[in-house]
């Protein structure tokens, strides 16, 4: 049911849908999301690694800091829950998914202009490779630079992944594309390779903290896997751009609704449910207008 939507989006959709509409406690929702992120990441990564879009070597030397981030993030989440600040998680989640939405939107705009020459980290960690680009029909060689900067950004992405049970893909891509100067195709594919390890670390900690509801996690994994298949098929049939615009709108709606729900739960400013839905809907429609007025949003990722 939820699966076909999730296939288009990933973990960042699952948690809000589970908590806002199905009434699942956010702990269990993030647990189910973390574990089903592994499923999507592994099946995507196995394809990407095989066709050479995901660079396994770069992935393996770069995932170090996401894992440190994930451990610290998951422990932070535990601290927040145990001090009774569950409402704060809703707000943090809302803001994080807004940020990742903006990052995804901006990704379509132009090629990076700040091309850096190979530096010492390129040599030491062998951060280079080549791939067959189907749109230019040629083999493209690339290299990565500024390994340390990417590690810093990936620490942050790991932290958000560990705290919220998401993949952190949007932040990973910033690290790999902007900091390391990798081509966007390589960056997105390598990111999904890394996400598996990040989410596995998160899930293992959640597991021992008891945040994983076995049946919910199992149903989510199956839903997400089926959804990813259906999503891929639908995507190939209708315009990908339109789908991405709808996805951005849905994500905007969910993030705002999460923030409002969090504010409501905190008890400082009570907002009735009806108003929460209404405000989120208004914001989502505003986002839709912004998207329609700037036709480049939603172009190739």
């Amino acid at each position: 049911m939820i699966g076909s939507v999730i296939g288009l989006g990933g973990g960042v959709l699952l948690t809000p849908i589970l908590t806002l509409f199905l009434g699942v406690p956010i702990k269990y929702a993030t647990g189910a999301s973390a574990i089903s992120t592994i499923a999507t990441s592994c099946s995507a990564a196995s394809v990407y690694v095989k066709n050479g879009l995901a660079n396994a070597r770069i992935g393996m030397v770069i995932e170090l800091s996401t894992i440190i981030g994930a451990v610290i993030g998951a422990l932070t989440a535990h601290y927040v829950y145990s001090s009774g600040l569950t409402w704060l998680m809703y707000i943090v989640f809302g803001f994080m998914s807004l940020i990742s939405m903006i990052l995804t939107v901006r990704r379509g705009r132009g090629e990076p202009t700040n091309v850096k020459p190979p530096d010492w980290t390129t040599r030491v960690f062998k951060l280079y490779g080549k791939y067959y680009d189907s749109s230019c029909k040629s083999i493209v060689e690339y290299y990565g630079v500024r390994w340390w900067l990417a590690e810093c950004i990936l620490f942050f992405s790991g932290f958000s992944a560990g705290m919220l049970g998401i993949g952190g893909g949007a932040f990973n891509v910033v690290g790999l594309d902007w900091a390391m100067n990798l081509p966007i195709k390589i960056a997105t594919a390598t990111s999904s390779f890394i996400i598996g390890a990040t989410s596995a670390t998160t899930s293992m900690i959640y597991w021992s903290l008891g945040y994983i509801h076995p049946i919910l996690a199992a149903v989510s994994i199956i839903g997400v896997s089926i959804g990813a298949r259906i999503g891929a098929r639908i995507l190939s049939r209708i315009s990908g751009k339109r789908v991405r615009q709808i996805f951005i709108m849905v994500l905007g709606y969910l993030s705002i609704n999460m923030i409002l729900r969090g504010v409501d739960m905190s008890g400082y400013i009570p907002i009735p449910r009806i108003q929460q839905y209404a405000i989120s809907m208004v914001v989502a429609i505003c986002i839709l207008f912004v998207i329609l007025r700037s036709p480049r949003i939603g172009d190739a990722r």
Binding site: A39, C42, S43, A45, S46, V47, V49, K50, G52, A56, R57, G196, I215, A218, V219, I221, I222, S225
Partner: peptide, 28 residues
């Protein structure tokens, strides 16, 4: 070689896991 090994292990494990989960849910 690295790529091939990793790609197949990811695929096989995902299939095994999803198979087990489906079996478990059915039995349940």
């Amino acid at each position: 070689k690295l790529e091939l090994v990793l790609s197949s292990i990811l695929k096989i494990c995902t299939i095994i896991s999803i198979g087990l989960i489906m079996l478990g849910i059915t039995l349940l």
